[in-house]
Structures are given as C-alpha cells and as structure tokens.
Amino acid sequence: MAVDRLIWKIIVDFVVLACVSFPLLALLLWAEPYHRGYFEDDLSLRLPFKQQSISEGLLAGVGFAFIIFTVLITEIVRDRQGKGIGGKFLSGSLIPGWLWETYSTVGIFTFGAACQQLTANLAKYVIGRLRPHFFDVCRPIPDAGSSQNALGYIQEYRCSGGDEALLKDMRLSFPSAHASFSMYCAIFFIFYIQVKGKWRGSKLLRHGVQYAVVIAAWYVGLSRVVEHMHHWSDVAAGFAIGATYAMLIFIFVLKPKKYGAPETWQQPVPRNTLPRPVLAR
C-alpha cells in the first residue's frame, strides 16, 4: 500500500501541474490580447524596435538548469553528511533520499513557475498594454471617419507594418514575464540556500552568491527596459509577482520547517536535587 500511495502521489503531482500548465499554453497559442488604443503624442510608445538579447527560451533554460543543479548538488551533499531523508520504495525499487528530495523540490519549483507565468501572462492579455516600440512596429493609420477617435484617443486604427507575431506581441507589455520569472528563480534560490545550503566555512560566501543571483535577476529586468520591450512599471510589477510567488511557494508549499525541527528551550536541571532541609544538615 505504501508503494501504491507513492505512485499515486507522483501521478497526482503531474495532473496538478498539467492543470496549471494547460491554461498557460492555451493562452499563448489561442488567446488574443485586448486591443488598447493610444494617444498620438504619447512619447513612451515611440521608441525604436530592438531585438531582445535574452529570449524566453534562453531564460527558462538557464533558470531551470540553475535551480535543478543547485538542488541536486545540495541534496547529494546533505545525504553524504547524514542530513538527508531515508530512501523510499517505488515499485519494489529503493529510491535514494536525495533523489526523492530533488524530485519534490524541483516539482514544487516547477509548479510555482507555472503559476507565476500564468498570472503574468493572463494580465498581459487582459490589459493589452502597448510596448514602447508600438509606433515603430505598428505604424498605425487612424480611421478618420470613426467617432471613437474624435477626442484624441485613437481606438480605431490599423497597422501598416509588422508581421502577425510582432503585432500580437506589441500588445503584451504589462507585466514583464521575463522579470517575473527571473525574480522568482532568484528568491526561490535565496530561500533554499538559506535553509539547506549551510556551510561552516566563510561567513559571507553564501550571502555573496545570493546577492549575485539577485543582481542577475535585476539585470534581466533592466535589459527589458533598455531594449524597449517594456516600460519600467512593467518590470516593477513583474519583479513583485515573481518575488511574491517564490515566497508563497517556498513557505507554504515546500514548507522548509520539515527540514529540521527548531531547537526548543528546556529548563536546566539543577545539579543537586536534594531538598533544602537536607542540605542544611
């Protein structure tokens, strides 16, 4: 029965992950973002189009590889130090404790990554904020006969430039999914190393690595502004989404308290327990 429960746990984990991932995939493949209008004198939309230096695939690959490598090495080291969990039987085979912990941690990380990406992308499609390179890509031609354009806010227009993919992507500025995922990875890594990556050597080594990871996530967000892919507020919102999900997933789903019970205070036992009248004799 224990083996059956373990198999069912793995199956349920994949089903839950699929339930979160499918809406995200459907959103990216079939949804159409909200067609927002623009002001002709809006200078924030008149920046030139630039090719992005960090693609979604590159960011996702580096982020997942970094977390998987960190968790794998940490669990192996902890297992050799005698701090890991015991092995588990799966279909008659003994699964090492470090492998099971790696699976659990990476699975929870993946679930959180899917949740924060679904949150960020859903906001993109609902809000439909125009990217800073909107004019350069779209080259809009307002409908002169439309009454909806009479007050200076252009709602009826057609684009004379850009292919279909770019015209869809130019409406997906808020929030920044790059910033959200990069900060999610950074905060999750910081919490994980803080709880499980303990080393008695240099006092500042662990914190130095944590700081470097935050700077890397910070750079990803800044690059989105420099390359005219997002407004600064898009990046700020993305950072907030990623950091919030990382903290919630780590604290309430991964539950770091299971890695070791906190030390409890116990009243010290006095050395001499004889009654006071006896001591007086």
Results as ranks from 00 to 15, higher is better:
P142Q: 06
F191C: 03
D163F: 00
Q51T: 11
K9R: 06
A123S: 10
L254S: 09
P268V: 02
A144Y: 13
L72G: 03
I127K: 05
P132W: 00
S147L: 05
H133E: 14
H133I: 07
K124G: 00
T70H: 02
L25D: 10
G152H: 09
P277S: 09
F109C: 03
K83E: 04
V253P: 03
P142F: 05
I54F: 02
D136H: 13
F109G: 00
V225I: 11
F66L: 11
W100Q: 01
P142K: 06
G92N: 12
A179L: 02
S180A: 05
Y192L: 07
V209T: 08
K257M: 05
W98A: 01
I187F: 00
P175V: 06
W218D: 11
L47K: 01
G92D: 06
V12I: 07
Y259I: 10
H207V: 06
N121K: 02
V278F: 15
D13V: 11
G84N: 00
A26D: 14
L151W: 11
Q266S: 15
R36Q: 11
V220L: 01
L25N: 13
C19K: 09
A246M: 08
P48H: 14
H228E: 06
F49N: 14
W8L: 05
S53K: 08
G238M: 09
L28D: 15
